[in-house]
């Protein structure tokens, strides 16, 4: 049934992780309602906003990593984790 979408294990895991993140953050939002705060970017962000900034930023980190051939791709994910930590801590 999924033949027409040409799934691969890698992309399946990729989307599963994103779907999982969305699910976790939805549950978190229900259990602990989000309160907006103003961080270093001087904009109001909620937990969901920070997830969005993290995901979008991670995409660009991966592309830059790949384009400049910094090193093996999986290491870019470590940079993304650091970035995610920074976003959730200070933005």
């Amino acid at each position: 049934m999924l033949d027409w979408m040409a799934w691969t294990p890698a992309t399946a895991i990729f989307f599963a992780v994103i779907a999982g993140l969305l699910l976790v953050f939805t549950i978190l939002a229900i259990k602990f309602p989000e309160t907006p705060r103003v961080g270093v970017l001087r904009i109001e962000t909620t937990r969901g906003d920070r997830l969005f900034i993290t995901l979008l930023g991670s995409a660009f980190i991966n592309l830059i990593w790949l384009g400049l051939e910094v090193g093996p791709q999986p290491y870019a994910l470590l940079v993304c984790l650091v970035y995610a930590f920074a976003v959730f801590r200070w933005v």
Partner: peptide, 29 residues
């Protein structure tokens, strides 16, 4: 999602796909 799936594969049609990894992203960049 289908576009994302296509982006890591190569095809010559007929719905037959070959894994290509991150090659297309590297090429395009």
């Amino acid at each position: 999602m289908t576009v994302v799936n296509y982006s890591v594969q190569d095809t010559f049609g007929n719905n037959v796909f070959f894994p290509a990894g991150l090659e297309w992203f590297r090429d395009t960049l």
